[in-house]
Amino acid sequence: MILTRRPALRDATHVALDSATTERLLRLGATRVVRASDRLLIGPSRRDPSEHAGTRAAWWRSSETWDRLYSPDVRWQPPVLVWASRSVHDRINLWRVLSWVRQVGRSSRDVFIIELDPIASSSTPEEPIPPYDCTLSVADHSDDVLLKQFETAQPWPITRYNSAIALWERYVDTNPLRFARSCVRGLRGVPELGALWAFLSSLFPRKAPDGALRLSRLDQLLLGLLSAEWQTPVGVFAHKSEAGVALRQLLSCTGDLFLPRRLDQWAAHDSSGAVERVAGPKPPDYPLLSSSYRITAKGVHLRDSGLDKLADAPGLPVAGAEAYATSAPWIVREDGRLTQLGRGCAQKL
């Protein structure tokens, strides 16, 4: 309850971007903590807050209200302190929070963004950390560090604040080209965009140099780890191979529960019949053990020879767009740039 001796900090409106940070701030004695936690790197996002909240709840199919950003109970009493790590997951949530706080009428001068750099470690991680690190959390830091950061917190300059809101607007746009262009070209003061695109580009189907249409990197890894033998998602997740490492890196951003969900989408995707599913060794309340999956001959063909058409793979909402959508067929070229299938150079980055 350290904050009881610091009324300014105790009574501020704190925004935490994950559950661990929420719990930490409450334990420190903060009385107004808003949990704005959502894994926005996967699934649909919308510009309109009400539509966004409803779409996200439907996407996750969870009864728990993890994200209270739009809750009418929050009074947004200034100052508003937003605690963010350098994880790309936190960055997108930060842009969204700043956009919403402006919509509820708070000036950028009332908003203090407290950014925590990763803790330097002398130990080598067991597996390589990808350029996009989604595992960082404000809660990784000690109480002393958090309090020290608070003492030096300042509102962002208005240009930086506006830039963050503009990035959220681009992220939720149904046309992802402007956002992808920002990521590839970079923006001053937003160094994480390159890393962010390294992740997001893994979700879209790819066009090989020979013109062949290939699965997204995520699906390529997923179907590459399946075999003719039945496997649970846990077996896929913990696969001891380089592909397993690469898949775990991506899942560190999507959340592990996305793995059975994507496998289910493949198994339910009638037009390809690439993956089959049977009941697993555990009941339904074990989400990564309640089903087993195996790849079919059609799945092997998709994996090794590529897609005949986009509809061979199940669609996947990504921010304002959708991967594999036939109505807006976004694909990633060999050089990592996004383009629309069947359109001319004008649609490229």
Binding site: E126, D140, D256
Partner: peptide
């Protein structure tokens, strides 16, 4: 689930592999 789409197991693994103290 500790956050949308993420179980405690996944969070523990993240900290384990990064050799950070466990948050939980």
């Amino acid at each position: 689930e500790i956050d949308w789409g993420k179980t405690l197991c996944a969070d523990c693994r993240d900290d384990c592999q990064a050799k950070r103290p466990y948050k939980y």
